[in-house]
Computed example of a mutant assay.
Amino acid sequence: MSELAITGGIAPHRINAMILRYWYLLLSSWPRLLELLYWPALQIVTWGFLQTYIAQNAGFFARAGGTLIGAVILWDILFRGQLGFSISFLEEMWARNLGNLMMSPLKPIEFLIALMVMSLIRLAIGVIPMTLLALFLFHFNFYGIGLPLIAFFCNLIFTSWSVGIFVSGLVVRNGLGAESIVWTLMFALMPLACIYYPVTVLPHWLQYVAWTLPPTYVFEGMRALLIDHVFRTDLMIEALAINAVLFIASFAVFLALLRSARRHGSLIQSGE
């Protein structure tokens, strides 16, 4: 039985070739590597000292035990996961190479899988040192969360990939003039994801909107775990169900926008 038959038409060697391309691009530029390390480190130091100050001056936050630092790390997983996906995609747009890739045997699903793998690689480069800084400077052991961390991570990374696939489709169809949405869309979701405060802080009508976003379930679950020492399995299952819908929808939208770009010649004329 051939390799393609086993994998349903997806060729691992083509995915591996794309991953190697992005890996070599990453290693060839020290500013790219520095940026992956700089911003997570800056965030954990800034918010960590704020957490220390609040813990020393407010009884609730002293009991909350690291909810701010935990929220910062989880937010960075969400944001950096999407950004790592989108940056690798934009490398092709900036190099005017996307049209060449789409005319090659490379399939859209293989392209997206390669981008997902690079998202994980970029994320690991930035977040692992971030968690070590949190442990060294503020004695917050992120990995001490244990098995619930797997549920938190999976839900956040699936959301980040869904957003990354969706915005990549918009850029494919509209060219680099739509590039700004890559940097801004996740921040637009930030207030509704309730990263640093519970959902109950929001106006009642806005809480319904917040509960349509998978990250909201993750951050509520994180607070329940760190404050009440309860793992909310129900929240993680609901988040996973919403993520499944978003992931399938984002992939369908990407394919539709890719077909539209091919019809209108946008793959070749990918400028502003």
Rank of each mutant, 00 (worst) to 15 (best):
W23F: 15
I19S: 09
L27M: 11
G48Y: 05
L25A: 03
W47C: 05
W23C: 11
Q51A: 15
V45S: 00
L4T: 07
I15K: 09
I19D: 10
Y53A: 13
G48H: 06
M18C: 05
V45N: 00
G8E: 09
L26E: 01
I19P: 08
Y22Q: 15
L50V: 15
A5I: 01
G48K: 00
Y24C: 02
L27I: 05
A41F: 06
N57G: 12
Q56S: 12
V45D: 04
T46C: 06
H13G: 00
A11P: 00
L33P: 09
M18V: 13
P40D: 10
S2C: 03
H13K: 08
A17P: 02
I15L: 11
L42C: 04
P12A: 09
E35T: 14
E3Q: 14
I19L: 06
A17Q: 11
N57E: 09
I6K: 13
Y22S: 14
G48V: 04
E3N: 08
Y22I: 02
E35F: 11
P40I: 10
R14S: 03
A41D: 10
S28I: 05
P40L: 10
L4M: 02
Q51L: 00
L37Y: 12
H13I: 14
L26I: 04
A41H: 00
L20R: 14
Q51V: 01
W23A: 12
M1L: 03
W47L: 11
